[in-house]
Amino acid sequence: MIPFTYARATDVADAVRRGGAEAARYLGGGTNLVDLMRETIERPDILVDVTGLSHAITERDDGGLLIGAATSNTALAEHRAVRTRYPALSRAIVAGASAQIRNMATVGGNLLQRTRCAYFYDEAGAHCNKRHPGDGCDAMDGFNRMHAILGASPSCVSVHPSDMCVALAMLDAQVHLEAPASTRRLPLTELHRLPGDRPDVETHLAPGELITAIELPAASLAVRSTYRKVRDRASYAFALVSVAAALEVEEGRVKEVRIALGGVAHKPWRAWTAEAALLGQPATEASFAAAAQAELAAARPLKDNGFKIELARRTMVAVLGELAGEAV
């Protein structure tokens, strides 16, 4: 770690004032940032600790939930309203990392996790456009079993590691942002970027902008939602592929559906194409398969990860089938 100064933000205004400095970074639970600092991949001069800011989960008048960004992942997963009304979110959170990490990690920090691409992590010995734009990408022709099948670019084939974000993308979550001169909201699906030729820029956040809360819209659909994660060991591993989905069936036909995929792209992947393909269709395996096929038509395999296309297709069909079964 390079030397830095540490400050604990007393409130949002204090945080964004401090966080606006060059080479300042907001510090949540530290579960990713501290690790990356130890690897000297992250080199902040100033750490602004925002874990003392809001960690309240409050009911909104419109039936939605407002979740303070400093809420721990565990607190969010175990909250009654989340478990009963947004089960996919609870399931996604407890599918990620380990209990100790979920106790430390904040909701805001989870959103800003960086990729676990092994070449990204090898500061001393590997080329990575995300660390150093223009440096090249060793993953492209290297070990890329874990890497992206959707939305990748010649610059970067890494994937976003979060489970929670996949559920939030599916649930149409909104991200509340604060900067010294602005307050705004962004749909979670528009928070993260695809890599393009600037994989080092991972979000649409302005410099110094702070995530203060996540808003979950009221949605009866979400009650029948779930999350399935496929990984290389039974627990404590990043997703090869994950699927968050919610489904409402009326008279045998898909009335409403939302699907997002994890482990497949540089951002949590909302499956808009599949959703559009399913609306009004019979809630059958054939429709699910056709929708999955449509979504994955754009998928491009790398040397080691071609299986992910078939795995994503099968997992989507299985998850939708499970939800349809419950819906009947």
Partner: peptide, 8 residues
């Protein structure tokens, strides 16, 4: 990594 001889 057989290109670099480095453990990935």
């Amino acid at each position: 990594d057989e290109r670099s001889g480095r453990i990935v």
